[in-house]
Amino acid sequence: MSEPLMVLHYDVDGTDFTVAGEASGAVKKVLKQLGVSAEVIRKVAIAMYECEINMVIHAHGGFIDVEIRPESIRMIHKDVGPGIPDVEKAMQAGFSTASQQVRELGFGAGMGLPNMKKYTDEMKITTEVGKGTIVDMTVYIK
């Protein structure tokens, strides 16, 4: 893969619900300035937002690197949370371990990971229980 022409870095605070979405919002702005098509922006924004929220709800925060190349946008989300014991199961639509408290906030439908899969062209999850999770997603520009 070629060197990215631009790398954006964001820290995601795992203690504050209200800041989740700031990183995806900032990336959206950058992509609009770059003249990226509406469809690509939408895919990136939705996938990133879902992933960012997961980092806050399930993994006490972490950081995100966004690499922009002429042909693609890659988003790498890293956390040092509890990890995902069964990725295949977590990917199923409707699967969620969210607490009652989180569900009351409107999250926990178990649709985050399936949506990320749906809106991205490549998605890879590397995870280890007790260590953390890396969600690596790419959206193609053309």
Partner: peptide, 8 residues
């Protein structure tokens, strides 16, 4: 697009 990226 590549130019735009560089400028960004």
């Amino acid at each position: 697009f590549s130019e735009a990226l560089k400028k960004a």
